[in-house]
């Protein structure tokens, strides 16, 4: 008797949770319109707090980074002051949910544009592009995929780099590792001619590990990084796009690069491999 009752209530609760979860996925919370944001006098911007050099906290605990430089400028364009903002610190896993639950107005958190995400949120014009690259010792720099013929390339299992080479250049022999730390160790031990991974990551590594260079800075299909708003928040999206085009006219993203990324990547990287001005990919 007791058992069947527990089962009955258990099933009821489970069903209830499924319904609730379904409601969360389909989402109904209304986003704040541009006018409502202006009336409130503050915009809620989601950023990272632990992803240098894009979004992180400096020694005093202040929000800084490449995303922040751009976001602050956007806030200033909207309100005339870069302080009319509430920074919401979030984790990569729930950027979409924060937008759907209307806990934020816009995301500036190294948000890579993908098809799946574009179904749930509206991306504005991109301000950055990322691709895979190849890092190698300066003494035997790999500058072209042809240089890899008959040599070993180090990759991390399950990354874009692995699938890219496996499907496009099957004759390049891959040396696979589970963790990125093992992969870099293998490169410094000389077990491969080069190592392929996301180029932003390689730039930073090559900058602190002397004697290595990102010989191939950009390979394969480009991913873009863009701000995002709640799906259907049209006015805010349009205003954001206009503002990004305006920033492009004054080459602002390059300024942001110099301020936030250059110290991490060093002088050898060409900013044009990473930044997008005015939302136009060249």
């Amino acid at each position: 008797m007791r058992r069947t009752m527990v089962k009955f209530f258990g099933t009821t609760i489970l069903l209830g949770m499924i319904v609730l979860a379904g409601a969360i996925l389909t989402g109904t919370a209304d986003a704040r319109t541009l006018d409502e944001i202006k009336a409130a006098g503050r915009i809620r911007v989601a950023v990272f707090a632990d992803k240098p050099p894009f979004g992180y906290l400096d020694e005093e605990g202040k929000n800084v980074g490449f995303d922040l430089v751009i976001a602050k400028r956007v806030v200033k364009d909207l309100f005339g002051s870069e302080n009319a903002v509430e920074w919401v610190l979030l984790e990569p896993a729930n950027r979409v949910e924060y937008l759907e639950a209307d806990k934020i107005d816009v995301v500036f958190a190294n948000f890579t544009v993908t098809k799946e995400r574009a179904e749930k949120v509206d991306f504005a014009l991109p301000y950055m592009k990322v691709a895979i690259g190849v890092v190698s010792p300066e003494s035997a720099a790999v500058k072209d995929i042809a240089d890899l013929k008959g040599k070993k390339l180090i990759v991390v299992k399950g990354t874009t780099a692995e699938t890219f080479f496996a499907s496009n250049y099957p004759d390049v022999e891959l040396l696979k590792f589970d963790a990125i730390s093992e992969a870099f160790q293998a490169l410094t031990d000389g077990r491969g001619a080069g190592l392929s991974n996301d180029n932003t990551f390689l730039f930073a590594w090559a900058n602190t590990n002397k004697g290595y260079t990102v010989g191939i800075p950009s390979l394969g299909s480009l991913d873009t990084i863009a701000p995002a708003v709640r799906k259907g928040n049209k006015e805010l999206l349009e205003w954001l796009n206009e503002d990004i085009q305006k920033l492009g006219a004054e080459n602002f993203i390059h300024k942001a690069y110099d301020e936030a990324l250059a110290p991490y990547y060093g002088g050898t990287v060409n900013p044009n491999d990473l930044v997008i001005e005015g939302g136009v990919i060249k």
């Binding site: 009821t12 609730l20 409601a23 919370a29 949910e97 639950a101 209307d102």
Partner: peptide, 27 residues
Amino acid sequence: FRVYLEAFRIVPILVWLFLFFFGSAIV
């Protein structure tokens, strides 16, 4: 009470946090 207790034992606390944090806003 039994159902209430089991619900908190079976469903991870993280899921409950999400349910209240995002769920209450959306629903």
